[in-house]
Amino acid sequence: MTATALPLPATEVGTKDRPESTRRAPRGENRAGWLFATPFLAFYIAFLIGPVLIGLVISLFNTTTVRAGLGEWAGLSNYADVLSNGDFWASMWHSVLFTLLTTPLLVLLPLAFAILVSRISRNQWFFRLAFFAPYVVPSAAVCLIFAFMYTPETGLITNAFGWFGLTAPDFFGSTSGAWFAVVLLTLWWTFGFNFILYTAAIQEISEEVYEAAKMDGASPWQQIRLITVPLLRPTMGLVLILQVLSSLKVFDQIYILLAGGPAYSTRPVIQYIFDTGFSSYRGGYAAAATMVYFVILVLVSAAWFLLRRRSNSANA
């Protein structure tokens, strides 16, 4: 930019000439900030950074889980073994398949229900509670309840198929039945979290926008389609990435309900890591598998971040 007498737009002046002090907190405040963050940081280092570093180290050794010490040096051979292992990739695929099955349902259905609930004029609290309540039930309890309902012959869900003249799939004995069982359970159980995120975002939308639309003669359906949904797009993006990451981390439901069965056809990658690392004592190998999985999760997050940044700059 050349030095001219032309006045620059106010905003640009502001950002350019902002004094140093407003960008950085004063020294004393900075120190206090770190002090307040110490309890969190201590836990973060002890239970997250520390274990990740330990995992990184033992992935390079032939470590036995049930023995002290690192064992002998293995170099990158654990990684080579993981990458060439069919069972690892099969379990990776199961985690991805679970994500593909659950994400669309858990992004779109809570959106639809959050919008519907927002249009109810009375006793909204009841619906919010009803949708959110299952989320606070522990996974083991949810799985036990659903295991009862999926029981062949006597289970509630098994019988419910009969009411419509359908035959229930074998929820524990067949792969497709097992996926159906675990996806339905997950939908019921985790629905509430996304629902609450959407509900919060809907409440953020200013009432005046709707009023203005009403004055212009917009029908309720037009209001939803042209105001609510577009204004919820950032939340949908957030829900999508949170859902993808949490679905990729699936373990509890599949482990407790199915133990990865039948014949490991639904075993997710975390259970594979658990099985090799703890049941077979192959600590080094399991640590290498964890690292591979970790890198994949980081790549997914990074890809989302880049896509979002591009779309944000395109919108600007």
Binding site: T64, R67, A74, D81, N85, D87, S280, Y281, R282, Y285
Partner: peptide
């Protein structure tokens, strides 16, 4: 082969 070639943990 997948079992016998994996490194024994102990």
């Amino acid at each position: 082969k997948t079992f016998s070639t994996a490194r024994p943990p102990v």
